[in-house]
Simulated scan of single mutants.
Amino acid sequence: MRTPHDTTARSYSAVIDHVQEVLLYGSADLAYWQHRLAPVGLTPTPHADRALLVLAAPALRWAGIPFRELTLGVFVGEGLTGTSPSGLYLASAYNSSRLLAWLERQFFQTPYTHRSIAVTATNPATITISHDKTLVLCALMRPAAHPLWQRDELWTGSIILPGPGSGWFRARLGGPTTAYRFDPAADTFTLDAGDPLSRLLAESQFTPDEWHLRTDAHHARSRTYRLPVAR
């Protein structure tokens, strides 16, 4: 199955500005994600013999409703240059709003589940996820971390939903970004493996590498399109 290309969906059905978000990039066991994605006909993009993953935690507002998300994406395929990922497999997704999680599942066929989520998109950044008063994921940046770089960053690509033939949508995500190295000696990253998303990270031996912080980001997405079932 081919990853959808940009020519298929040129318009965006939802656009949100002034998003605050934390992106935590990292790597995981390549064989684990090769095995997990094989049934849907996808291949994780190799990155130093590891799979490249991103935890994205935006705080945003839609239709007057403030909410936060936490998604786990696995980069798949290759871009036209043969080096940059062209798609993102949405392995798991949480929303702080029960209503919006339900709307996502019903109208966009996205795998959102309700969780309590806290996000701080300034230095020191934080991401915390809890369920029934149990902390299931905690990522904390050390105070006074020094930036690696600052620039406008933009990602456009296909976000592919779990399950054969389930669907995909086109996304445009970006804004002024400040990057920091994840320091395993000073930063914190803990998981409760009883949680489905945390279990994926633990089983695939996810290792955080880099924080990306945005305080005024832009998100846009198309409607959901159907994918053919892999044969």
Rank of each mutant, 00 (worst) to 15 (best):
R2S: 13
T8Q: 15
R10L: 15
H18K: 11
L24V: 13
L24P: 07
L30V: 08
R36S: 04
L37K: 03
H47T: 02
R50Q: 05
A57G: 03
G64L: 06
P66H: 12
L70P: 03
L72N: 05
V74R: 06
L80Q: 12
G82A: 08
Y89F: 06
A91K: 05
A93V: 00
L99V: 08
L100I: 10
A101L: 05
Q106D: 01
F107D: 02
Y112L: 03
H114L: 07
R115A: 10
S116P: 12
I117Y: 15
T120F: 11
T122S: 13
A125D: 10
A125S: 13
L140Q: 15
M141Y: 14
A144K: 13
A145R: 14
W149M: 12
L154Q: 14
G157F: 07
S158I: 00
I160Y: 11
G165V: 09
G167H: 10
G175M: 07
F182E: 01
A185C: 00
D187P: 11
D187K: 12
T188R: 09
F189K: 09
F189N: 03
T190Y: 11
A193M: 00
P196N: 04
A202R: 07
D209C: 07
D216E: 07
A220R: 08
Y225E: 04
R226H: 02
